[in-house]
């Protein structure tokens, strides 16, 4: 197996249990080359072509500013990698930094933060209005389960392909039943926390995209049993979504 996985800013971009994704993926792919890029490091993907996957997770609003400032000089390179089919996984509000801008209306006046501009996503943030929900949705032919917790609502253009069609729970804004964005092998979702542990079949597909091989999952029997149990709960109308 020959693959390189770069985790962007894990020390500050895993605030809602997102570190579980890389902990789990490491158990599935212990022989992969792992690169952990800290906030003041130059990302590995800038000067190297052998990156198979880039992961970035949930962060604070203050960290979003710092991350955008650091990635902005490389936005074209990121776009090139996405166009070339490199696997990206962005969980929670990491998705927002790849969009056009974030408009913060918490203080009553709109403050606009320019983002990387790779996708059409625009985000509206209001820290007085927190969204918290269980999410059940379809990603291609898979049923996925997860959780969202955020101050933002986001909007994508009609032509963009969402990551999930939400069948239960809240979508990425009050009026939609979609979540996230998908382009080539870029997967951006508001689902946060250990989504790779929670969604073993998605993880299997992701690993195949990274390695080109069918790799057995770590603790496969356990994670599939937990997934099936959660799926059943999320489909139960008596279970509250938030």
């Amino acid at each position: 197996m020959n693959c390189t996985i770069e985790v962007l800013y894990p020390e500050v971009c895993t605030i809602f249990g997102d570190s579980g994704n890389m902990r789990y993926l490491y158990r599935c792919l212990p022989e992969a080359k792992w690169i952990k890029t800290e906030l003041n490091d130059k990302p590995y993907f800038v000067d190297n072509d052998d990156v198979s996957m880039i992961y970035i997770g949930t962060m604070t609003e203050q960290t979003q500013k710092m991350v955008i400032k650091r990635l902005m000089p490389y936005s074209q390179r990121i776009k090139e990698l996405i166009d070339n089919g490199t696997v990206f996984l962005a969980t929670g509000n990491a998705l927002e930094i790849f969009g056009a801008y974030i408009e913060d209306t918490t203080e009553g006046v709109a403050n606009v933060l320019e983002c990387l501009g790779i996708f059409s996503i625009i985000t509206k943030r209001d820290e007085k209005n927190r969204i918290f929900s269980l999410v059940l949705g379809n990603h291609e032919d898979l049923e996925m389960v997860g959780f969202r917790a955020q101050f933002t609502q986001s909007f994508i253009a009609e032509l963009d392909k969402p990551f999930l069609n939400v069948t239960r729970g809240l979508g990425m804004n009050e009026k939609s039943n979609i979540d996230g964005i998908q382009q080539n092998n870029f997967y951006g979702t508001y689902l946060l926390g250990p989504i790779l542990v929670l969604n073993p079949y998605f993880t299997k597909n992701l690993i195949k995209k990274i390695t080109g091989e069918d790799v057995p999952l770590a603790l496969e029997e356990n994670v599939i049993a937990a997934y099936n149990k959660r799926l059943e709960e999320f489909k139960d109308s008596k279970v509250h979504i938030h």
Binding site: G17, P194, V239
Partner: peptide, 12 residues
């Protein structure tokens, strides 16, 4: 009692 707990905290 009412929902399905968000278990993300286990990973922090």
């Amino acid at each position: 009692l009412h929902s399905s707990e968000n278990i993300a905290w286990l990973y922090d």
